[in-house]
Amino acid sequence: MKLTIALFGITREIVGRPTLELTTPDGHSVQNLLAELRQQYPALGKLSSLAVAVNNDYATDDTALHERDEIALIPPVSGG
């Protein structure tokens, strides 16, 4: 399946673009995705935290991803 991942803040700068397209096996989990991205972009592993949002909510490691999900990487937030 094809996943589109939106990138913000420092993750956008690390990857060098605002979205990332990945082809992954069906049923790929958040944990799988993070492991893959950390391998591809080692600087992601140096962040204080890195969460994944699916359809505007925080996902857990075992959340399964689907092709039509709105997926985003969430580096440490600093609003307010």
Binding site: I10, L47, A72, V77
Partner: peptide, 24 residues
């Protein structure tokens, strides 16, 4: 809000920039 809302602050100094809280 400061813990959960996905908003990011980048500080610009006279000699550089930082994404706040990004690194330990």
């Amino acid at each position: 809000l400061k813990q959960v809302v996905p908003i990011w602050k980048k500080e610009f100094y006279e000699d550089g920039t930082t994404w706040v809280a990004a690194h330990p």
